[in-house]
Measured scan of single mutants.
Amino acid sequence: DAPDEFRDPLMDTLMTDPVRLPSGTIMDRSIILRHLLNSPTDPFNRQTLTESMLEPVPELKEQIQAWMR
């Protein structure tokens, strides 16, 4: 099983494109984008959230890719 820090906190699946929300939570980009289609909010604190506020986490993405090899 993947380490917890590699798993999306909402869907508990392996992240492939991790992004940091303004709240500091790291999620998979595809999952948070799907959530934003229904509700333009951070799913953990209900603060306003837009796609432009998502910050890529390239170092975590590299760690996940290395773990998958």
Rank of each mutant, 00 (worst) to 15 (best):
P56K: 06
I31G: 04
I64T: 00
W67T: 05
E59S: 12
M11G: 09
Q63F: 08
I26M: 03
D17G: 02
N45L: 07
S23I: 02
W67R: 07
I26R: 02
M53Q: 10
E62W: 10
I31V: 15
F6I: 03
E59R: 09
T41P: 02
M53T: 04
I32P: 00
R46W: 13
G24Q: 04
T13E: 08
M68C: 13
E5P: 09
P40M: 10
F6H: 03
Q47T: 15
L33I: 11
N45A: 06
V57L: 13
P9G: 07
P58W: 09
R34E: 11
F6K: 02
G24D: 02
M11P: 01
P9W: 06
S30H: 13
D42L: 03
Q63P: 00
E62P: 00
P9A: 12
F6S: 02
M27T: 04
R20Q: 07
W67N: 08
H35W: 15
I26D: 00
L21K: 00
E62F: 11
D17S: 04
S52Y: 11
R69Q: 15
F44G: 03
D8I: 02
L54Q: 00
W67K: 07
G24L: 04
F44V: 05
D4Q: 15
E5H: 15
D42K: 00
P43T: 01
L21W: 03
R7T: 08
E62N: 11
D4G: 13
L49G: 00
R7C: 12
I64L: 06
E51V: 13
V19I: 06
K61F: 10
R20I: 06
K61G: 06
P3Y: 05
I26S: 00
D1C: 15
N45M: 06
I64W: 02
M27A: 05
D17C: 08
E5M: 13
G24N: 05
V19G: 01
N45W: 06
T41V: 09
M27Y: 05
R7H: 07
R20M: 09
N45R: 06
E5I: 13
D28H: 03
H35M: 12
M27P: 00
D4R: 15
W67Y: 10
A2N: 05
P3N: 05
D8T: 03
R34I: 11
M53R: 04
V19L: 03
S30F: 10
F6P: 15
F44P: 01
V19P: 02
T25R: 15
R20C: 06
D12L: 13
P9N: 05
S52W: 12
P22G: 01
E51D: 08
A2K: 05
E55D: 09
K61D: 04
P9S: 07
R69V: 13
P22M: 02
D8L: 04
V57Q: 09
P56S: 12
A66C: 12
S30G: 10
E62M: 12
T48K: 13
D1H: 15
S39Y: 10
P56R: 08
H35E: 07
T16K: 12
R46I: 06
L49N: 01
S39P: 01
P40I: 06
L54I: 07
A2T: 12
T16C: 15
T13N: 07
D12E: 09
L49D: 00
P9V: 04
M15L: 04
I26Y: 04
S52Q: 12
V57Y: 08
T13L: 08
T25D: 05
S30I: 11
L10H: 06
Q65I: 13
I31Q: 06
P22T: 02
P43D: 02
P18N: 01
P22C: 05
T16Q: 12
L49R: 00
R46A: 14
M68S: 08
D1N: 14
P58R: 09
N38R: 12
P3I: 04
N38A: 12
L21P: 00
R29T: 03
S39A: 08
T41S: 09
D1V: 13
A66L: 12
P18Y: 02
L33Q: 09
P40L: 12
E5K: 13
A66S: 12
Q65G: 09
S52D: 15
Q65M: 15
R46E: 14
T25G: 06
K61A: 10
P40W: 08
G24A: 04
V19E: 00
N45C: 07
I32Q: 01
S52F: 11
G24W: 04
E59P: 05
R34G: 11
I64N: 01
D1K: 15
P9H: 06
F44Q: 04
V57E: 08
P3A: 05
M11H: 10
M53W: 06
P43M: 03
D4A: 15
T25W: 13
R69A: 14
P58D: 09
Q63G: 05
E5C: 15
R20W: 05
D28L: 04
D12T: 08
L21A: 01
G24K: 05
M68W: 14
L14S: 02
I31T: 12
